[in-house]
Amino acid sequence: MNPIIQVLLMALVGALIGGMTNTIAIKMLFRPYEAKYIFGKRLPFTPGVIPLRRDEASTKLGEIITGHLLTPEVFENKLRSPETDRLIMHFIDRQIETIETERLTPSYFLERLSAGLTDKIVDSFNDEIRTKVTEEGQKLYVRTIDDIMPDDALNAVDYKVSNLAYDINEKIIQYISSDKGFGDIYTMVDEFTENRGRLARSLKYVMTKESLTERVQSELLKLIRQEKMIDIETRVIEDEYGKLKESALSELVTDSDLDNILNSIIEVMQQKIDIREILNTPIIDFNREMFDRFKEKGKYTLKDNFIEYSGKNMSKIMNKLQLAEVIKKQIDSFEVSKLEELVMDVANKEFKMIMMLGYVLGGIVGTAQGILVLFF
């Protein structure tokens, strides 16, 4: 055989072997997609390298990305950048403008979070009022008056009771000394003299009814003005007052009355604290002056606090997001054919260069072998 043809033939064979080897190696990165079996035994090199190591590769890739690329420091630096600052400020301005022009209410945002959330909050708030009022009412129901009343109010009542006998006596004296009192005493004297037998009737022949009435009136006034009478009244009043203070509310109020009282309190509180009306009130109407101050200065404080808080807690936020796990799941969700297509689109030129390099190196090796054969 012609030496030149022999060298060229060996160079061609070497180039084909080198090129085809690299081509097959590149294909075997992905193919076959699934393991192949003969007689129940898996064939070597099936599935391809990437499908075989897919779980391990996705785990490592997620760790690399979150450990070296998307680190908390990267997010924190981006968060504190002027571009992000302007973006957040623009977002806040847009939201303030929308709230003001469209007169948005708290209920609007609640319904955006979850349909029917406003009704749930209203019902929950009213139920809480009913529960708390009922619980406190039941607690008060078994407590004594002395325990229920505030100290200031109790001291005020104690003072009033201590002087009550003098006040009552004064009222009685005013009544007895009045024309009305005199008339009532005259009526009682008249009934006494007419209905108490002969001895009583004989009094009208000795004294006139008017003089007898005046005598009775005078004696009553003397009796009432006596200090001993006031002491007796004071003792009786204080004894009854002490018993009243030591009485439980349940002794004075029936269960039915308690229910009516509690229901009235609940109804008044629900009317006074109309949570539905509050939630349906435009945000700007709660306090216009405060809203304007927020537009001028407060929004900057909100932005700074958000950036500061997010920056300090970025590590915790990323741990909560579990980005490595998210990346792994996304990669695992790709079909191998789709993954191959993505990789080939990105590195198609490089893979072609590797295949061409295989042909070139194979050709060089084949040529070298041909020349060596000629000489040896």
Results as ranks from 00 to 15, higher is better:
194 E>I: 15
147 D>A: 10
228 K>N: 06
265 I>W: 04
55 D>P: 00
250 S>N: 07
87 L>I: 08
153 A>K: 15
314 M>G: 09
197 G>Y: 08
116 G>V: 07
176 I>P: 00
370 G>L: 01
137 G>E: 05
256 S>R: 06
331 I>V: 13
143 R>P: 03
281 T>S: 05
179 D>C: 06
344 M>F: 12
101 T>M: 12
226 Q>Y: 09
71 T>D: 00
210 E>L: 04
9 L>Q: 06
175 Y>N: 01
115 A>C: 08
282 P>F: 07
17 I>Y: 05
141 Y>W: 02
25 A>W: 03
7 V>D: 07
11 A>G: 15
238 E>A: 04
93 D>S: 02
182 F>L: 07
342 L>W: 07
8 L>Y: 08
181 G>M: 06
30 F>Y: 06
37 Y>G: 10
114 S>I: 06
146 D>Q: 13
292 D>H: 15
112 R>L: 14
240 E>P: 01
99 I>S: 04
364 I>D: 01
359 Y>R: 03
157 V>D: 01
259 D>W: 03
365 V>L: 14
308 E>Y: 09
129 I>L: 11
53 R>P: 06
227 E>I: 04
127 D>Y: 03
163 N>K: 09
132 K>F: 00
91 F>Y: 13
257 D>H: 06
180 K>P: 00
273 I>W: 14
149 M>S: 04
235 R>H: 12
219 E>L: 15
38 I>G: 09
237 I>P: 00
126 N>W: 02
135 E>H: 09
212 L>N: 02
293 R>D: 10
143 R>W: 07
225 R>F: 06
347 A>C: 05
126 N>R: 10
55 D>W: 03
367 T>H: 08
36 K>Y: 13
323 L>N: 04
15 A>C: 13
25 A>C: 06
235 R>I: 13
218 S>C: 07
108 Y>I: 03
186 Y>S: 05
247 S>A: 14
294 F>N: 03
219 E>S: 14
